[in-house]
Amino acid sequence: MKRRFKADRFLVQRMGISLIALAAILTVVPIIGLFGYIIAKGAPAISWEFLTTMPSNGMRAGGILPAIVGTFYLTLGTAVLSVPLGIAAAIYLAEYAKENWVTRLIRIAIINLAGIPSVVYGLFGLGLFVLFLKFGTSILSASLTLSIMTLPVIISAAEEALRAVPQSFRTVSISLGGTRWQTIRKIILPQALPGIMTGVILGLERAAGETAPILFTGAAFFLPRLPGSPLDATMALPYHLFVISTQVPEMPIQIQYGTALVLIVFVLGMNLIATFIRSRARAKRQW
């Protein structure tokens, strides 16, 4: 009787494990399938020429250089605008702000901002940066819009990373005659940096792949030359992909998948860097 019971339990456990394994397979297979499909279809399009020349023949031939450069500029612009501001805000929230209704309101706002659909950011950017501030459809307007979208991600991640640094380090540093700012600069920030970097990269990665926020604020359908200033509009990989997939008749499918592959590599590369930073910091961490 007892033995039966034991065997039953064993069986239930085995079934449980099998179910979990099945769930894991069900999530992993489509992802691998997706990548495999895009690589298989897109890889033949990839060549030095594809990466370094302008599109030609109404974008049906040639390369995608302006889209690559544009996405690079937009990501860079977003980083320049959102990273310092985001980290400063996180330092304020984690290290200086007292817990009161103002900080609670700020936190609620940040959480809710992260949940707003990206097209809403696009409309907001159009109203504020393009029209009201008269920055026009430009890299500047698009970067500002992407920054607003990225800021909540950076602030939350950075605040969490700062709070994860043990309180005792702060107490010790202060007790040795450190000011609050010295403590932050010499101990807290360096210790939190890998966590902050991970958040920053994940935020920028999302910005790099978005279409809707740049649609009305800075993305161009086609430009015959590379943007020369922050006030120029620009082509960008995600929007370019949208354009050549839906707006251009008789588009060679190879170029579409080639473009998708470049975008994925760009975004995934950032993700890999973030993972690398995180795992290296974990190994080196002393607390």
């Binding site: 005792s168 380090f169 010790v172 007790s175 040795l176 002393q286």
Partner: peptide
């Protein structure tokens, strides 16, 4: 600086 403190748990800085 004039009045230093040692805590119960040793906290070495990283």
């Amino acid at each position: 600086r004039r009045v230093g403190m040692v805590f119960a748990r040793p906290v070495v800085l990283p």
